[in-house]
């Protein structure tokens, strides 16, 4: 069970109040977690990753275990603490403005 924390507006779209959990078969990576998230919540497709390129949208970041994972390969294994559900993968909206 993988825990994922979404920004407020994506929780609203997905109609969830809090952290969500997804099951991933095989290796736990950004790609596999986001694939599972979008399968469970198809209304989120295109909101985190671009429909065409599959790239992370520019104003979103991925954090976990006090690390910024935004720029790592989507196929890099996520930290063990995320894979075993101890820590969440955090999808965060970048702050623009003061």
């Amino acid at each position: 069970m993988i825990r994922v924390t979404l920004p407020y507006h994506l929780r609203t779209l997905a109609r969830v109040d809090d952290e969500v959990t997804v099951d991933v078969q095989g290796e736990v990576t950004l790609r596999s977690v986001l694939d599972a998230l979008e399968t469970q919540y198809p209304m989120l497709r295109g909101t985190i990753r671009d429909h065409i390129t599959g790239e992370r949208r520019p104003f979103l970041r991925f954090f976990a275990c006090e690390e910024d994972l935004s720029h790592q390969s989507p196929d890099t294994p996520l930290p063990d603490a995320v894979a075993n559900g101890t820590e969440p993968l955090v999808v965060l909206g970048a702050i623009a403005g003061g």
Partner: peptide, 8 residues
């Protein structure tokens, strides 16, 4: 729409 999350 949103600059962060795109088109809905």
């Amino acid at each position: 729409s949103s600059g962060w999350f795109g088109q809905i």
